[in-house]
Design a protein around this nucleic acid. Structure first.
Lengths: 108, 108
DNA sequence: CTACATATTCGTATTATTGCGAAATACGAA
DNA sequence: TTCGTATTTCGCAATAATACGAATATGTAG
């Protein structure tokens, strides 16, 4: 079998995009809070998380760009929640990824 | 219930560390190759992946630092493989993470 | 209209990441 | 020893990420 340079696949790019969004403890914490549905509001989160409000906004934005959450303005505050569709996709991709590798009997 | 600043937990930090390591398409590709156990050698990987050898070394090093892989010198080459123990841990953590959130009936 | 409460954007500084080629390392073979 | 093979480290450049406070929206209440 010949080995040759291959471009990366869309799936690999997508997987990395999700993973990158999860690659900061604050963002993990945010998602866990959204999961517990106790604190879906920016204001509540900013009281619990050890960062400035403006920094929180940035992290929320990155999660939004990655498609993992969505925000709705409910004045005077903003309500955030998990983006169910992409969450399911991410769950599936990570599941496959880890399983695929686990099934290999590692000879290396 | 009072809301107050909380430091991040060790689990959140660990989770983010794993995710960060997965947060680059090249590193996803590397892990997939290690999974297929066709190309456990640095040289083989460097022929397939669209990056320079030195850059590959850096990515391998990051995966090693995160504990996801390990390398063994088998002259004249170096053999890389998944670090089974930490892989299992990561699999578990991601599994819990996604499930935890899925169980919530999202009202937000 | 003005003041208030909430969240985002802007400006900025610091640090981290990504990438490459050149140089260094390590070891076996000639 | 010297050469060849394989990988890593170094030096550098360019870009991205992280964080903060100040400034800017935006809609409500007075």
């Amino acid at each position: 079998m010949k080995l040759e340079k291959r471009p990366l696949t869309k799936e690999q790019e997508q997987m990395a995009r999700f993973a990158k969004a999860l690659g900061h403890p604050i963002r993990i914490a945010i998602l866990e809070m959204l999961a517990g549905e106790k604190c879906c509001y920016h204001g509540d989160m900013s009281e619990v998380l050890p960062i400035a409000k403006s920094t929180l906004s940035q992290h929320l934005n990155e999660l939004k760009d990655a498609g993992l959450i969505q925000g709705t303005i409910t004045l005077p505050t903003v309500k955030y929640c998990i983006n169910a569709e992409n969450w399911t996709l991410a769950k599936k991709m990570f599941g496959n990824f880890f399983t695929e590798i686990e099934n290999t009997d590692q000879k290396c």
